[in-house]
Design a protein around this nucleic acid. Structure first.
Lengths: 213, 213
DNA sequence: GTCTATAGGAAGATAGAC
DNA sequence: GTCTATCTTCCTATAGAC
């Protein structure tokens, strides 16, 4: 067995956070023991508590870093072309492709969420995520409205809550059932429903104002 | 310490399943150890493996019994009065009231679901639930269509998947955020969307015309 | 057939060596 | 300041007593 080189605690922290994420993806929360994480990081288990005061603290930090990454890619996918349905649909799909590309990431998010409901230490980053997602989606909706010259005829936070719920629910269905086709159909249907709530307000041509209603 | 009375294995099984459910509700999956369950059932831990071959087996049986109970109450709430939106809304609310009344039950369902994604033994009852819910919802939709004399202008399985996703997602949001108001608003919005997919095909009796739509 | 003492292992954490 | 041998605890499961 090789002799352990002396490594600063801050470096070890980074290595452990990295290793923890890999273990979480591969083994889930149940498998993310301090021993497994240290093994993945190539260091003895005892080193763990030199960097983190507890397993809980590490999980909390992992959650704080990883949970917010989820939506960022999807919220940049707003495009101008096509119908309103297309625009909404493409935005939803941008998120969905993240789910299909990395289902494990979302699986871990659910595991962390479930754990956070029992463990006060984890609840802060989790609550932040569940408060942040609807807010981010609401921002996207506002952006779409701005770009397309429409208003939503439903309270935007309610619309956002609905969308987040559908995405979360479909993700869960997909993780359990593994049928991406069903999810994509539901996603299109959702896009149609959402687009159905858009009302034109910006003048395109005077003649259209009356027809738009 | 009291002497243990001799009890048949089948009776102990029932007691353990009962106790397991209570422990699951109170402590979650993580706290549902064989020891905790036996303590709750008032029997020594060693008795456990006389009735179940493993902790996994007990959890599987609990899941098989408990998961299907969830929707049954909600699917009996179809009423005829009011608009189509009202009918759909009341049906969704019937389910939602179960969530608000017993959030812990749904929390445990998510925990079992998350565990099942890692543990093949638990996947059977869980998959059954995730396949069964959309089917049950689809049946309710067919029933509503029949009662109201409409057809859905979207594939019923897709509509059902959407509804189940919204309910699952809102439940998760509610468990994390604890805001029933937000969920109820989103539920009403969902009911409006669903009702928007109903197309009248049968002429309703004159007396009902005023009340309908 | 019913029950229990005990094995056997893995977890998180720490005291103290270098 | 960096690292590791060891402690305590709590788990599931079994071998064998009644």
């Amino acid at each position: 067995m090789a002799v352990m080189p002396r490594i600063s605690a801050v470096d070890r922290r980074a290595q452990l956070l990295d290793a923890a994420w890999r273990v979480l993806l591969a083994e889930g929360i149940g498998g993310a023991t301090t021993r497994a994480i240290c093994a993945e990081a190539g260091m003895p288990q005892g080193a763990f508590h030199y960097c983190f005061s507890s397993r809980d603290q590490l999980l909390t930090e992992v959650a704080a870093v990883m949970l917010p990454r989820e939506l960022s890619a999807a919220t940049q996918a707003i495009s101008r072309g096509g119908t309103l349905v297309d625009t909404v649909h493409r935005t939803l799909l941008a998120y969905w492709e993240l789910v299909e590309a990395e289902p494990r990431v979302h699986q871990v998010i659910y595991e962390i969420t479930a754990l956070a409901l029992r463990d006060p230490a984890l609840s802060t980053p989790t609550r932040a995520r569940y408060a942040g997602d609807p807010t981010a989606v609401a921002a996207v909706l506002e952006q779409i409205a701005e770009v397309r010259g429409i208003v939503w005829d439903r309270q935007v936070p309610v619309l956002a809550a609905q969308i987040v719920a559908v995405l979360d629910g479909l993700t869960l269905q997909y993780l359990v059932g593994g049928d991406p086709g069903a999810a994509r159909e539901a996603l299109l249907a959702c896009a149609q429903d959402v687009a159905g709530r858009g009302r034109r307000v910006r003048r395109v041509a005077p003649a259209l104002v009356g027809a738009a209603r």
